[in-house]
Design a protein around this nucleic acid. Structure first.
Lengths: 143, 143
DNA sequence: GGGTTTATTGATAATGAATATCATTATTGT
DNA sequence: ACAATAATGATATTCATTATCAATAAACCC
């Protein structure tokens, strides 16, 4: 049964913070786990709505934010477009190649770049915590 | 006289595109050139307003956008905060270290990282056009 | 179980930045 | 100077995000 571990972690975080586990939280988390990798609040809301039309937009939004706070999801903002959320748990850190034409996200990772970033920060008396690397251009189909 | 070259370039772009050189454009460009490196529309509007209260917010906004289209300035968006604009002309490409505490921007550049990024893109059948690297953490003062 | 506390929900309003609208003004080429 | 039309300035609109608040429902205690 996929996602069981993630659900337990989320549930645990909720209890730790003195929050409550609700039916909506579970539904939204499940939908998020089985949805596309990069999803907006609106998209997830529309998925949830199909089976649970009583669940509101604000609740989906709030719970995606909560998942981020719990370290379970990550919010990605590109320019002025809607925020996208992706599952963080169980996924290594990665950067994105973003197609300027079709908007496709390609996940990539490069150990050398990661290390050089740390070095670069340290050379500037800067303590790195996290970073964001986005390479914009054209994917195979669109170039 | 600093900025003369930039002004000529901007003026040239305007003519090329069939647009018009106006008093406001020149005032806004001058203010932009002598202002802080990373400035918001609002900040630039407030500077301009001091000497030229008749110039509106929308005009400042439009002209900053135009400067970007002309390749003279660059828009930087961090999270949900207001867009910042920086002078691109005469400045090498660079990335940013951003302090999570005080918001300070430190400009950095690393040739090795730049090259690895191009390589990384190509390995993924991706044609890179531009990129954005932001390293978040704590600056010397705030760590 | 029943009662109490209070976090959560759902609907909607508020917010805030970015952008669009439009009548008026001003620039450019003739 | 004239005509064509881009630009301006004030304001309205858009749109995503976040806040509000009465009603609901978890979770804890007895």
């Amino acid at each position: 049964m996929p996602g069981v571990e993630v659900k337990e972690i989320f549930s645990g975080h909720i209890k730790e913070k003195g929050l409550r586990n609700t039916r909506q939280r579970e539904i939204i988390l499940e939908a998020f786990l089985s949805a596309n990798k990069h999803i907006t609040v609106e998209d997830l809301f529309n998925i949830v709505k199909k089976k649970h039309p009583e669940i509101g937009y604000a609740t989906v939004h709030r719970n995606l934010k909560l998942m981020c706070e719990s370290g379970l999801a990550e919010e990605i903002k590109i320019g002025t477009s809607k925020a996208k959320f992706e599952l963080k748990y169980g996924h290594e850190h990665h950067d994105h190649l973003i197609c300027l034409n079709c908007g496709k996200f390609i996940e990539v990772n490069d150990e050398k770049i990661e290390k050089l970033q740390v070095k670069l920060a340290e050379e500037n008396d800067f303590q790195p915590v996290r970073h964001k690397l986005e390479i914009y251009g054209f994917c195979k189909k669109c170039r």
